[in-house]
Amino acid sequence: MFDFFKKKYSNPELLAELQSRQQRWFVFLDRLEARMEELTDAGIPELQQVFKEDTDPYKRSHYHMLLGLMGQFNNMRDKANEVKEENIISFIYSAEAALPPVTSPAGSEYYRYVHDFRMACLDRYHLFDDRLNEALEALRHAAGEQDLESAYQQELAAFEKIKDQFTCKQCGGNITIPKMFFIDTYIPCPFCQSQNTFSPSTAARMVLHNARELAEQRTAELRRAYESSRPQDPVLYKKYLRAMFDEWNRIVPDMAGENEKFYQRLLEEYTFNHYK
């Protein structure tokens, strides 16, 4: 009536299988991590070198190389996910399906073994995932920051030198460029009113391209203060964002109107589903 004489459930093969799978999973992730470390250690100096030698103003060679390396890391993550789904998660479901009910003493004991196996394997996976993200961050920041401030100051000085050196192509009268332009702009001749087109130099165009990054560099302290606050403080975020956009507008005043719309959008995105 109470199943006193029924044979107790025992499944040593399952226990052995759990242990063996766990070991194989750990070894597999260890190997991936070793490969990850190899690639990071050897890849960072290569990335720095390519960045230094890259003459393209947008540093596209460096970017291609960075993407190639990141692709390798993402493949590792995909591979680990695939193995986890096929050999850990599927196995857990099939093992649990064959166990006695969890309400029975034996069932409860074996469910606990499977649960321990699941937690050990997933914890190890999360550790791998954290290390992979750290490695990706290290690659992204390997080249360091460009010195945009001195490039900007050089451009300001260069503009001061050239702003009075242009003449009207129609009448030959002197034209003074009223302010620093970063894109092609019509400048009317003060004498004959002809519409001249001023094309800024490549370096001046790059100021517009790098303006946000330069503003970010100038306000890095405020961003770090926000990022290191726990819990993250919305007031600090707003302070950082306002300061960053003010700097950005100071560098490229012509874009202030557009930037303000972008600022409002970022603020709304930050407060969406949060609190104001």
């Binding site: 393209d56 060679s61 009207c168 001249n196």
Partner: peptide
């Protein structure tokens, strides 16, 4: 692997072509 990757990254044609270094200039369209 890194050597090959570097070779490919540095010799690959950039999308949109190169960026020639140009000085500021004034032009007019009659």
């Amino acid at each position: 692997f890194l050597e090959k990757l570097r070779q490919k990254a540095t010799t690959q044609q950039h999308y949109g072509g190169g960026v020639p270094e140009e000085e500021a200039k004034m032009d007019i369209r009659d």
